[in-house]
Design a protein around this nucleic acid. Structure first.
Lengths: 203, 203, 203, 203
DNA sequence: AGATAATCGAGACGGTACGTCGGGTCTTACG
DNA sequence: CGTAAGACCCGACGTACCGTCTCGATTATCT
């Protein structure tokens, strides 16, 4: 995840193998307690039982560290096989909402996105570590729905991006901006809208 | 916008009436040049030709100031009357995307949302100043579509919230997270998805 | 004391006559509680029940105000007639020491002297308001001693200055720098030294 | 001079050894140019080529810093051996007057004394760093005069304090309060007064 | 075994911005 | 005009973190 250069490592004391995980865990812990803006790297280092030097040797700054700490959270997402497209969508959206309900995800994710608007390297890191990695969910769900015959065998690749933006964007907006819970009722209404559209939604 | 108490202002020198606008404009200018994280209140004060104390007398901190500075940007949004619901949606989404393309909106908006995850007062301020204020667009669009007969005369109030989250969330996610432009082509695809849903989208 | 211009006062509301005394009293009170460096003019104004404007209209700054407030303290000094030069000296020195034991004199006096090292106008004000005004004590004491025949009828004017510097300097140094009390025992030893000198002091 | 704890310094980067001297020199330089009240710690740090934090790590505030900066000035005092007590006194008093003629001593010394009237720790620091340290001059002068037979072999310890207060006080008062130069003529008259007293001074 | 070399904890370093405080000025409405 | 109130600009305060650096002490691999 961070920019190691394992090739040139021949001699000298090797880096502590446990430090990385300790630092990322300490980062999430600090995010929960303090939030993004009050999180300091000195504090993270102290929590991780590590010197500040060690931290800076592995990450270039606060942004990169938090991206890595947050990215891991989303790896636990999985699209369930509930027998229908609607049920599958509802399942994964609920999982996503559950992650966004955790404070380390809430403040960490939005903050690095905000920073990324002025930092191309950071944006790329986010894209690689989070966005592209989770598009697998949309792909898998579509494949399954096509196998079931619920969706036509289409192959427009931009549709995946569109759906990802709509699903992720709606859940994020609901939970973080509107600050309302994405509970089962909301998820059902959202899924219905996604499947049949506005025109038929009122049937 | 900021917490004035105009009732109790009887004595002493009155607050400068021009300072507010100058400060908000300076804030947007600084957001463009520096972005959220490098924006300092001292710098904003200097740009506005105002003392730091004057700034702190009116806003409690960076977050509140930026919320107010950004909120004004969205007031220029208007839902056009293009004759059909699809065309109306496309029009307002394009306007929204245009605002989000401006750097002062990009970094400012996301940053305050990030901070609001740990600050209830800030979240309320965002909700009042930005979110609720712009829901008027969804309401007006729906009314117009119902008058045209494009939508059934429905009155579920949560539908407005849902649509707002889906539209705003999708555009924000597209432009800021996926970091792709919300151009005409994308907007058309998104509007189609919104109107007819996934099931019919591939016709 | 302060720079009034009573000639040109013809029209308009007359200055409050009680304000001056209230301000000087408030200054001494604040000196006691806070000391020189923590004394603020805003606080003095509040204590005196007066607006800051009123204060600045009458004094140009903190230094001038404190000089005036402190100068009044020394006006109560009087050289007693105890029948002998030694007794007279001891009496006036004890009075002087008593004034220097009061906190408003301690911190106020030294502070304005310190400031006067960089401010000629302030130094002149101190000289006029305090130093020259109290040299009357030395003159009177010498005249009385000459009348008694204790001192030869000398007329070197610089001797007065010398004695004043020695007496005032010694007491100030004893109380403020060495921070020891100028009690009766010390005053007796000092007077003996002053009268008969080091050579005979050990008899 | 400042509160080092050299015992506990085992780990971490050691403090810069050159910084102390640079800071004290910068302090004296700033005292000359600006005087006490306009001297700022930020400016001193800049002059010394040092960060403000480094300065605050070693001194607790302006007062303590100036005490140390000024105290060094008096270390150059030495009582000369001119063959007689009178000549020795005149010599050291002239040296003392020369130091007090320097602006860094004038405003710095009086200001810290003024502050010390409200700050016991500061008073103690002044006493240790300046007053007690220079009493060596009186002791040495007395010993030499006793060896010469000019003074009786007396041993009252309070006499040293008394003489110190009288000499230091008189010179300080002459130069800073009366604001007249302590030139050779004045020093001669003062020494005569000190040796033979008022009674015989008019011979 | 000893040399070499990169890592480690610790903490001082030069900076930058913070949010507050006080100084002295100015602008109101009132007397 | 004087006054009380209080906003104004300005500059310094002392603190907190930043990211870098310099230590002595480890802990590996390579002679």
């Amino acid at each position: 995840m961070q920019s190691r250069t394992p090739a040139s490592r021949a001699t000298g004391r090797p880096r502590s193998t446990t430090a990385d995980a300790a630092i990322l865990a300490a980062t999430r812990e600090a995010l929960v307690e303090l939030g993004w803006s009050k999180l300091t790297l000195g504090d993270v280092a102290t929590r991780a039982g590590v010197a500040k030097t060690t931290l800076y040797r592995r990450w270039t700054g606060k942004n990169e560290l938090v991206v890595d700490a947050v990215a891991e959270l989303f790896d636990e997402l999985e699209i369930p096989n509930r027998g229908s497209l609607a049920a599958d969508i509802e399942g994964v959206v609920l999982q996503f909402a559950a992650i966004l309900a955790r404070p380390e995800a809430r403040s960490g994710l939005m903050a690095v996105i905000a920073e990324s608007t002025r930092d191309d390297a950071l944006r790329e890191r986010i894209r690689t570590s989070i966005v592209e990695r989770q598009k697998r969910l949309v792909l898998e769900g579509r494949n399954r729905a096509q196998a079931r015959g619920e969706l036509p065998p289409e192959s427009d690749p931009t549709t995946v991006d569109l759906i990802f933006d709509v699903v992720a964007g709606a859940v994020v907006h609901r939970t973080l901006v509107s600050a309302e819970p994405a509970d089962e009722q909301w998820v059902r209404a959202f899924t219905r809208l996604l499947l049949v559209g506005l025109g038929q939604a009122a049937d």
